[in-house]
Simulated assay, not measured.
Amino acid sequence: MELSDDTLAISRTLSELDKDVIEFITVLDSCDVDYVIVSGYVAILTGRSRATEDIDIVLERLSVEEMDRLVSTLKDRGYWGMAMPLDEMYSMLSEGDRIRIAEKGEMFPNFETWFVSNDVEREALEAALRVELNDSQIQISPIELQIAYKLRLAQQAGTLDGKDFEDALHLYLTFEEQFKGEELEAYVRELGVEESYAELRRV
């Protein structure tokens, strides 16, 4: 893996999860939907060995017409809403809810999507890191922001031995020589996770 200012290049054999993610992202790209993948899959993509049932994706807010196009394309590509029909997608997301989308008849993996709703998600969306995954491209949260975000989730859960802290540790150790230290520390201060970050650096 090679991390530059705005690109992460990964060349390896794709897992079935990678293929599922790429297939879903091609739908978003075909509908010109701005998105960013956050949370657990970022760690898995970069080599952490753990299971996940969902892929978290933040979407830029869409108009009714844009959402209708996305829903129609999702249906055409064989996706369904697991808990709510895809036709309810705009109303759910507009009210701040999330919707889980999967291949028709399947439960896992599912893509948990929602509209950008806070400053952290806005930052992840606007500063998204482009990943060149073999011949495909996807967008993920910046590594520096993802580390701080995962530390906040671990801190909120009151544990530094769960998957969120381990995800943050994996990203920190994997990209320690490549990420932007000043940006990471700024995110750490912004999210109020100085103590968790200090613990991570002691591991």
Score class of each variant (00 low, 15 high):
residue 34 D to E: 13
residue 92 M to W: 11
residue 134 N to W: 06
residue 147 I to K: 00
residue 7 T to Y: 13
residue 86 L to R: 02
residue 32 D to M: 14
residue 181 G to S: 06
residue 96 G to I: 01
residue 13 T to D: 15
residue 50 R to Q: 09
residue 170 H to Q: 10
residue 108 F to G: 11
residue 113 T to A: 11
residue 197 Y to V: 03
residue 30 S to H: 08
residue 102 A to Q: 06
residue 106 E to W: 05
residue 39 S to A: 13
residue 61 R to S: 15
residue 56 D to H: 01
residue 24 F to K: 01
residue 8 L to S: 08
residue 151 L to A: 03
residue 14 L to W: 08
residue 174 T to C: 08
residue 60 E to T: 12
residue 124 A to F: 10
residue 3 L to E: 02
residue 178 Q to E: 12
residue 173 L to A: 03
residue 21 V to E: 11
residue 66 E to C: 04
residue 64 V to W: 11
residue 142 P to I: 02
residue 200 L to Q: 01
residue 60 E to I: 06
residue 107 M to H: 11
residue 155 Q to A: 06
residue 125 L to H: 11
residue 21 V to D: 10
residue 196 S to N: 09
residue 48 R to S: 01
residue 193 V to P: 00
residue 87 D to H: 08
residue 28 L to E: 03
residue 58 V to M: 02
residue 90 Y to G: 04
residue 89 M to R: 09
residue 22 I to N: 11
residue 125 L to I: 10
residue 81 G to W: 08
residue 74 L to S: 05
residue 35 Y to C: 05
residue 124 A to G: 10
residue 67 M to T: 14
residue 10 I to H: 00
residue 146 Q to G: 00
residue 100 R to V: 07
residue 114 W to N: 11
residue 45 L to Q: 11
residue 167 D to C: 02
residue 167 D to G: 01
residue 140 I to P: 01
residue 165 F to S: 00
residue 158 G to S: 04
residue 157 A to I: 10
residue 8 L to R: 06
residue 15 S to L: 11
residue 96 G to T: 02
residue 44 I to E: 09
residue 4 S to P: 00
residue 1 M to H: 11
residue 76 D to V: 07
residue 74 L to Y: 02
residue 85 P to M: 02
residue 93 L to N: 05
residue 52 T to I: 13
residue 109 P to M: 02
residue 105 G to I: 09
residue 106 E to S: 11
residue 75 K to E: 13
residue 152 R to N: 01
residue 97 D to M: 13
residue 115 F to K: 04
residue 65 E to A: 15
residue 82 M to G: 03
residue 79 Y to P: 04
residue 139 Q to E: 14
residue 22 I to E: 10
residue 58 V to R: 00
residue 80 W to L: 03
residue 53 E to D: 15
residue 12 R to V: 06
residue 40 G to N: 12
residue 176 E to I: 11
residue 141 S to Y: 02
residue 3 L to I: 01
residue 190 E to C: 07
residue 46 T to C: 13
residue 152 R to K: 12
residue 115 F to G: 01
residue 203 V to M: 12
residue 82 M to E: 08
residue 47 G to F: 07
residue 144 E to A: 06
residue 124 A to M: 12
residue 90 Y to R: 07
residue 105 G to D: 05
residue 40 G to W: 09
residue 15 S to E: 10
residue 83 A to K: 13
residue 195 E to V: 08
residue 177 E to L: 07
residue 40 G to M: 09
residue 195 E to C: 02
residue 47 G to H: 06
residue 169 L to I: 00
residue 149 Y to G: 14
residue 81 G to H: 06
residue 36 V to W: 03
residue 183 E to L: 11
residue 64 V to P: 08
residue 202 R to G: 14
residue 134 N to L: 04
residue 93 L to S: 06
residue 2 E to F: 12
residue 45 L to W: 09
residue 126 E to M: 12
residue 92 M to T: 14
residue 176 E to M: 10
residue 65 E to W: 09
residue 76 D to A: 13
residue 176 E to Y: 13
residue 62 L to I: 09
residue 203 V to R: 13
residue 200 L to N: 01
residue 131 V to P: 01
residue 47 G to W: 04
residue 99 I to K: 05
residue 148 A to C: 00
residue 165 F to T: 01
residue 102 A to K: 07
residue 5 D to I: 15
residue 189 R to P: 01
residue 72 S to Q: 14
residue 40 G to S: 15
residue 88 E to F: 14
residue 172 Y to S: 09
residue 25 I to G: 07
residue 68 D to T: 11
residue 78 G to K: 00
residue 139 Q to R: 12
residue 116 V to M: 12
residue 72 S to C: 13
residue 38 V to S: 04
residue 149 Y to V: 10
residue 109 P to K: 06
residue 114 W to A: 15
residue 102 A to D: 02
